[in-house]
Write a protein that binds this DNA or RNA. Structure first.
Lengths: 403, 403
DNA sequence: CCGAGTAATGTTTACGTAAACATGATCCCG
DNA sequence: CGGGATCATGTTTACGTAAACATTACTCGG
């Protein structure tokens, strides 16, 4: 009943720690002995469901301790808590027999270091905060996953704060919360405009890395090389013989979208080609569909570069519905290389983004900052892209005017 | 009551945490007065990039204080640190003038409560751990997002541990790590078989909720009502007049996949229809494509239920390539209702999963456990699904035998 | 066989917060 | 106008850990 305990000690009547410390067993006696023969304890090595399920109410003495501390281990092992600390942290200078005894006591009591106390002591939390707008986009979730994986490999956990509605206030709030949370650094995966006027205030010593932004003058930025990816897409189409390339953009507020659009335009201009009006999209398949409907009515249009794969999907459906074949009459290129894109009809030629690498570099940068104790200089670290050529692109139909 | 706020007290225009401490103004003088006229401080309201950028190493005095503690605020405000604590937590019994003074001092120093100390004191971390296999699937990432959002609304942060390779060892390791991390509860989004023989040992008082599993006899489980969703899909096809329904399964190791397959079979049997052999898939569009190729060779096949939308996508492509029209000759139903599915060719009829609701209920359960201080009884909380009828389903071709 | 040196372990203390208890001032009512 | 009640605030202490310092016990060279 009572039982299960959390830290909310009291309430269950427990004298919590009331029963006093009382360090009998002065070490006057024999600190040695080494005989860790306490195998006959009643709790089996591994109950089916783990302690989490049974809460702890079944501890015989009735006087269950909520949390096992070093002092408890020390008492059982007949040593000082400092020795337990040394064993716990693998410090040298503990004789083998003592170490064994301590380890046995730890096992028996199920000791776990208390990370809060540790963090308090060290002023470090071994945690990286991640602020992001949405996990719904493939890119973000893959990036986060990579961040989490690499952080874990380095002994860091990640704490996530999603921002439901992307306003500057909410961004500010998220940073503020991060400042109060136990994090050593923050990785922000947010659109640039949200950082524009926000003056980020974090506790000193908390470092920041930003993804998806051109704030390279103020922060350490890691990002996919958007411009180069877009350039590759456009060049690919031009090289196939298309006279020009139309473009369905992402939302105006997105840095990545702007960047891709800018590169699209620049690449066309460099090649001396006409620049058709950009069709506005918002990343959604729906907006791509709308753009596709419009484009289907443009007889001169033989090639389209969609700023992401989902819009390309909508585009493909619209073109299909309007009877314009892909790639026979119109070629389509996307951006992202989401796993599904290879199974679109037809399989989509698209720009591959290495999200895992973006995540990896974020973690690397952040850890470098933490370890050096100082921010790395602002700057931008660009991850290269590669073009995945599949079946949605081909030379323009013969009837189309060659350049 | 008052001051719901958790930590996010006033962060107004904080001068970050000004450089330098400098505790003049001993409180020997007049602790009263309320004249908070310290407007003339030198640090500007908001530096462009925030303290995070300067890392702290450039602080003149050389020996900068990393963290501003209550004691610092107390000294500046000329009160005891306990009073600062009271103000910080919105406790009553602080006279207005004093409160103002403390708040001013907080602002001036850029005080932030230290969550580690707080956690140590309370034995609570206000953090929920999430263990999951992969963020790559739409379902998982959307669930996590919902969890994070709702947790944040309740003042909880979430800590993520992804498992790269799904072995029981890794799962055990993740739980162990969680046990050492500062979390009050754990939500595990993993396939059932991974929990099978793992005896989860978490510190007492850390609660567990499981998603995507039928461990309802041992844990609190929250899940989409897989069986009912599958039943709806199959019934829909039968109601359209199809004699039977083929099925492309998810991986054998997946509980959700098993559950959908079981319901598919049961629904057919209930209706007295023949049960065709199930085609094995692994959630990927690629496996759906392979299944589609096989199915295209089955003349009797007029209806297929794919265990997820991505496999349905592959299926659609394969059928399209083989010249079998959808829904003219073959009807296809998916599962998940990923955003793109409305833009497949043709738009996919599919079973909608309410991932957000799953996340919400997870958080609700976990918080209830934390607050009650005891694990809720094992059991399963099923979130309903709904069928989204789009254009990939229709009555069977006239030539097909009616039931 | 003694004393310096070192290895093993114990004791004290600080980290930042907040509950519990203590103190001093003010107020109100008989 | 005295004494208890109330209020605002201060002081002590514990939370769990680990660095810094202290204390033993043992080793080894002269």
């Amino acid at each position: 009943m009572e039982a299960v305990n959390r830290g909310d000690r009291e309430q269950t009547g427990t004298p919590t720690n009331g029963d006093v410390r009382r360090d009998d067993r002065g070490q006057a006696g024999t600190p040695v002995g080494g005989n860790a023969q306490r195998g006959d304890r009643e709790h089996p090595g591994s109950p089916i469901s783990g302690s989490a399920q049974r809460g702890g109410s079944d501890i015989p003495g009735g006087r269950r301790k909520q949390r096992v501390s070093m002092a408890d281990v020390a008492k059982l092992a007949g040593v000082s808590s400092q020795t337990v600390s040394r064993v716990s942290n693998g410090h040298p200078g503990v004789i083998d027999s003592t170490r064994e005894q301590v380890l046995a006591a730890m096992r028996e009591l199920g000791y776990r270091p208390n990370s809060a106390a540790r963090a308090l002591r060290y002023g470090q939390f071994n945690t990286i905060g991640v602020i992001l707008f949405s996990l719904a986009s493939t890119g973000n979730s893959r990036t986060v996953e990579a961040i989490a994986t690499h952080a874990a490999a380095e002994g860091y956990a990640i704490t996530l704060i999603p921002i439901d509605v992307p306003t500057q206030d909410n961004v500010l709030g998220a940073f503020t919360r991060m400042g109060e949370l136990a994090v050593d650094a923050v990785i922000a995966i947010i659109e640039i405009y949200l950082l524009d006027t926000v003056s980020v205030t974090l506790p000193p010593g908390v470092h920041v890395v930003v993804v998806d932004s051109d704030a390279g003058d103020r922060y350490s930025v890691v990002d996919t090389n958007q411009a180069d990816g877009a350039r590759q897409a456009v060049r690919h189409l031009l090289d196939l013989g298309h006279r020009t390339v139309w473009h369905v953009t992402g939302p105006r507020t997105s840095y990545a979208a702007q960047s891709r659009a800018r590169a699209w335009r620049a690449t066309l201009e460099e090649a001396g080609r006409p620049v058709p009006p950009a069709l506005p999209g918002d990343w959604s398949a729906e907006s791509g569909y709308a753009a596709g409907l419009a484009l289907a009515g443009e007889p001169g249009c033989t090639a389209v570069f969609a700023a992401n794969d989902q819009m390309a999907l909508g585009l493909l459906r619209a073109l299909h519905e309007r009877g314009r074949t892909v790639p026979g009459e119109v070629s389509v290129v996307g951006f992202d290389d989401i796993p599904d894109s290879a199974y679109f009809v037809p399989p989509l030629t698209t720009v591959h983004q290495d999200f895992a690498e973006v995540g990896r570099r974020c973690v690397r940068q952040v850890l470098a900052q933490i370890r050096d104790g100082k921010s790395s200089p602002p700057g931008t670290d660009l991850v290269p892209t590669s073009l995945m050529v599949r079946r949605s692109t081909a030379p323009p139909p013969a009837s189309a005017p060659a350049p």
